[in-house]
Computed example of a mutant assay.
Amino acid sequence: MAVYVALFVLIAGGAGVLTATADSPEIGFENPDVEVSQNETIEVDGQEWVVAEITEVEEGGGGGGHGGGGGATTSIVATIERNVTVEQSEAWANESTVQVDDGEWRVEIEGNDSNSFTLVEVLDRQAILENDSQADNETVERDDGEYVVVTEDGESTLVPTEEYFPAPEERSYATGDSLEYGGQTATVDEVTSGQAVLVWEATQTESIEITQHSRLTIGETEFVAHFPDASTLQLSSDIEGYEAQVAQIDQFQQYNDGLTRVLVLAFLSSLLLLGAAFVPSRY
């Protein structure tokens, strides 16, 4: 019985030593295609990106404000950005109202084969009336039309609205003409009987969020990301090499789990044998 117990203890000890001393392999790139820090530039396939941020993010836990983080872990996240020029467009329907130069304008297109349109100023009649101390703030309707009541020297006069209000400003544009719209220089791209189409170029910021060992494509090249520390981003196009390292880590974990089970079984077997040795004989 002692020999068997010693054998199981020896097996358990060997498994324990192997489990404790084995070094777990880790992901690492000896010659990454890209190695950058925050605010540095990445240039791949003619595309230029800037590392806008590399930061540690806390995940999980919670803790409720008492007793610590409750098992919270941290991960590293990077954001890369670039400015791209895109073409934008907008269609103005005939008889619609648009905002240009902080004012309202009505779009007017004449004819079915027109290649131009006219912007007609929409007058703020109410504001004009309120700014005139001699005029009533509302127009009045009569059988023969609409009037503005103007009072001078105590005498009220009806002035036809077409005479009282100024003539609206008109601006005409043809295909290929440019105008300022929304802070951009827009070009009249097409005019039909139903609408006018404006196009312009705008700059937009494109961003990619990168996490540990995530895959991303820049240009036509696929990379796998790795953070050797909390301030450095590495990108490697050696996908096969990365997958081989992942397989090696999985295999190590399987071997380590197997040794742990051997340790537990050997220890339990030793206890079982020792217990059986002290069971009193029935004979």
Score class of each variant (00 low, 15 high):
Thr55Gly: 13
Ser24Cys: 15
Thr97His: 00
Ser96Asp: 12
Ser172Tyr: 03
Glu130Arg: 10
Val262Trp: 01
Glu53Lys: 13
Pro280Met: 10
Val107Gln: 06
Pro228His: 06
Tyr173Arg: 01
Ala247Met: 06
Ala277His: 02
Trp92Arg: 00
Ser193Cys: 00
Gly275Ala: 04
Tyr283Gln: 12
Asp23Glu: 15
Gly67Asn: 03
Ser156Pro: 08
Trp49Arg: 03
Leu198Lys: 03
Glu209Leu: 04
Arg106Trp: 06
Gln245Leu: 07
Thr187Phe: 00
Phe278Ile: 05
Tyr242Gly: 14
Ala78Tyr: 04
Glu152Phe: 03
Glu121Phe: 04
Phe165Lys: 09
Asp177Glu: 09
Gly61Cys: 05
Thr203Asp: 15
Ser75Glu: 15
Phe227Asn: 05
Thr161Asp: 10
Val188Asp: 02
Thr161Lys: 11
Ala202Val: 04
Tyr283Val: 09
Tyr4Met: 12
Val246Glu: 07
Asn256Arg: 03
Glu146Lys: 03
Thr85Leu: 14
Val5Leu: 02
Ala15Arg: 00
Leu263Asp: 05
Ser116Thr: 09
Glu180Asp: 06
Val36Arg: 10
Arg282Thr: 14
Ile11Trp: 00
Arg215Phe: 08
Thr73Gln: 10
Gln251Ala: 14
Pro166Glu: 08
Val3Gly: 04
Asp136Ser: 13
Gln195Arg: 12
Glu35Val: 08
Tyr147Ile: 08
Ser236Pro: 13
Ala135Glu: 04
Asn256Gln: 11
Asp101Lys: 02
Gly46Tyr: 00
Glu169Met: 03
Ile210Tyr: 06
Arg106Met: 15
Thr85Ile: 15
Asp124Gly: 04
Thr19Asn: 07
Ser116Pro: 01
Asp113Cys: 06
Ser270Asp: 08
Asp101Thr: 07
Glu180Arg: 02
Ser214Met: 11
Thr79Pro: 15
